[in-house]
């Protein structure tokens, strides 16, 4: 036996010992490919999903046409994934950001003195733009497939709410760098709220926490952006995904 074969065998044994050990078996439930003795069988393929937290998202089996990339283009999944990326990068940004007069300086410092600060900020910002775009494309995909028709009418309603929440998240985040771009874009948007019939002035006052965009507005938008809207959108996403499954999985084929 060559040295190489012997090394191979030793490694395989060690790997089996580790994967079959108490630690790994306690983490991964039966059927997981990470456990010892996983073989590719229809039964195990079912277990991978069934004995997994992912079972909350995915059924064990899906329609064959639905897994063709060209059907959904994975747009709904990517909307969700972008939301996850934005949550992770957003939490990271929160370590370096204070929603006060210091906001602008914090962003400057983040970009110049903190490792990967610029990259993470860029990812958060472009990711947000991308999410608006991807959600919009997802909506267009759904429309062109007529996937909003019975029994999926209500999931479309939830979808429109998700689009609205995505825009609101984007819009509230836009103010946070506290630069000229931020304050004036939000001023344009906030002024529009002033045109709401009858209660326009009150709505605008509530939005700005005053008559115009100030640091009070900044704090308000910050709380909405990092806490309130994410909380709400997660709830609606949960219902959205749940309905996709309850409505019989993905629509189609056409």
């Amino acid at each position: 036996m060559s040295l190489r074969d012997r090394l191979k065998e030793t490694r395989a044994k060690a790997s089996d010992g580790f994967r079959g050990g108490k630690l790994m078996s306690s983490i991964f439930r039966p059927g997981s490919p990470f456990r010892k003795g996983y073989v590719d069988s229809p039964r195990n393929r079912s277990y991978v999903v069934m004995n997994n937290v992912l079972y909350h998202l995915h059924p064990v089996k899906v329609k064959r046409h639905g897994v063709r990339l060209s059907y959904t283009l994975c747009l709904g999944g990517l909307s969700f994934f972008l939301f996850i990326v934005l949550t992770i990068t957003g939490i990271w940004l929160m370590f370096y950001f204070r929603p006060t007069e210091l906001a602008y300086v914090d962003i400057q410092n983040l970009q110049t003195t903190i490792a990967f600060g610029s990259l993470v900020r860029n990812m958060h910002r472009w990711g947000a733009h991308l999410m608006v775009l991807v959600v919009f494309l997802h909506m267009s995909r759904v429309f062109y497939h007529g996937a909003y028709k019975a029994p999926r009418e209500f999931n479309w309603v939830i979808g429109v709410i998700l689009l609205l929440l995505t825009l609101l998240l984007s819009f509230t985040g836009y103010l946070l760098p506290w630069d000229q771009l931020a304050i004036w874009a939000v001023t344009v948007g906030g002024n529009m709220a002033g045109y709401v019939p009858v209660v326009g002035a009150q709505v605008k006052f509530g939005l700005f926490a005053g008559l115009e965009a100030t640091t009070a507005t900044l704090l308000r938008f910050y709380v909405l952006h990092v806490l309130f809207f994410p909380f709400i959108i997660v709830i609606f996403m949960a219902v959205h995904f749940w309905r996709v499954r309850k409505d019989g999985g993905i629509s189609g084929p056409l």
Partner: peptide, 21 residues
Amino acid sequence: LIFLSAILQAPLLEEANPNVT
């Protein structure tokens, strides 16, 4: 996204100033 963020810098203009529109 990482590629985009590496080549495209997010804008940061001058600090917010309510007096300069």
